[in-house]
């Protein structure tokens, strides 16, 4: 059976996890008070990479936002670039 040419609607190729890490770091550094304390690490998962985001404890509220609005925006952008399985987890390290 002949393969069809790709349609306009096909999903774009997901970006590599290192590129996603870099993109997330840039997006977050710009909105926090302590940009040098932003750290992103990724773990491969079955459906896509999980990006762990760490920020200065004072910036935690900023990256989560009112009713989680900012965290949702970060997830939307990273999901669009990394494929539907790409996830962003905000790590609360303030208590440990």
């Amino acid at each position: 059976m002949p393969t069809r040419p790709p349609r306009n609607r096909t999903q774009p190729t997901p970006l590599a996890p290192e590129v996603l890490e870099d993109a997330l770091e840039h997006l977050v550094r710009g909105i926090v008070s302590h940009p040098d304390d932003v750290a992103v690490a990724s773990h491969p998962g079955r459906r896509g990479p999980t990006l762990e985001l760490r920020v200065h404890p004072d910036d935690l509220g900023k990256v989560i936002g009112r009713s989680g609005r900012t965290a949702r925006a970060l997830r939307t952008v990273i999901g669009a670039l990394g494929g539907p399985g790409a996830r962003v987890e905000v790590i609360d390290g303030s208590g440990s």
Binding site: T70, A73, T76
Partner: peptide
């Protein structure tokens, strides 16, 4: 336009900072 809206939101925050 969901990704566009999300990027706009983040850009507004970056400007506000």
């Amino acid at each position: 336009g969901v990704v566009l809206e999300a990027l706009q939101e983040l850009t507004r925050l970056a400007v506000a900072r």
